[in-house]
């Protein structure tokens, strides 16, 4: 990128050596990894919780596990969706800058 000194983009210009990696993969990659681990944890949880106790009361409580699962899954889908939308915005602008410096 070789910006015009009068261009506003000079604020963001970095030499090729100093150039930061694109942000999109940082955001998406990090959250995708976290999401996979969290889904694995949530899928393992019923057995882990069942191991903490036994009996009818425990069985009744376990029926409510799906409410907990749904609440956490929705929360993470929302956060992941927000991260993906941000990453796509950043990638779109960065591609524009690379294509049309």
């Amino acid at each position: 990128m070789n910006p015009n000194p009068s261009s506003p983009m000079r604020l963001f210009a970095l030499s090729p050596k100093r150039r930061l990696p694109p942000l999109g993969p940082w955001v998406q990659g990090g959250l995708a990894g976290a999401l996979i681990v969290l889904v694995a944890v949530l899928l393992l949880t019923p057995e882990a919780l069942a191991a903490q106790g036994a009996g009818a009361a425990q069985a009744r409580q376990m029926r409510h596990f799906w409410h907990v699962f749904a609440a956490y899954a929705i929360a993470w889908l929302l956060l992941f969706g927000w991260a993906v939308s941000i990453a796509r915005r950043i990638r779109r602008v960065e591609e524009k800058l690379d294509r049309d410096p």
Binding site: L23, V27, I86, R89, I90, V93
Partner: peptide, 15 residues
Amino acid sequence: LFLFRYAAARLESAE
């Protein structure tokens, strides 16, 4: 995420 979103908005504005 707030900082990334802020950076995206500034980039878009500059573009």
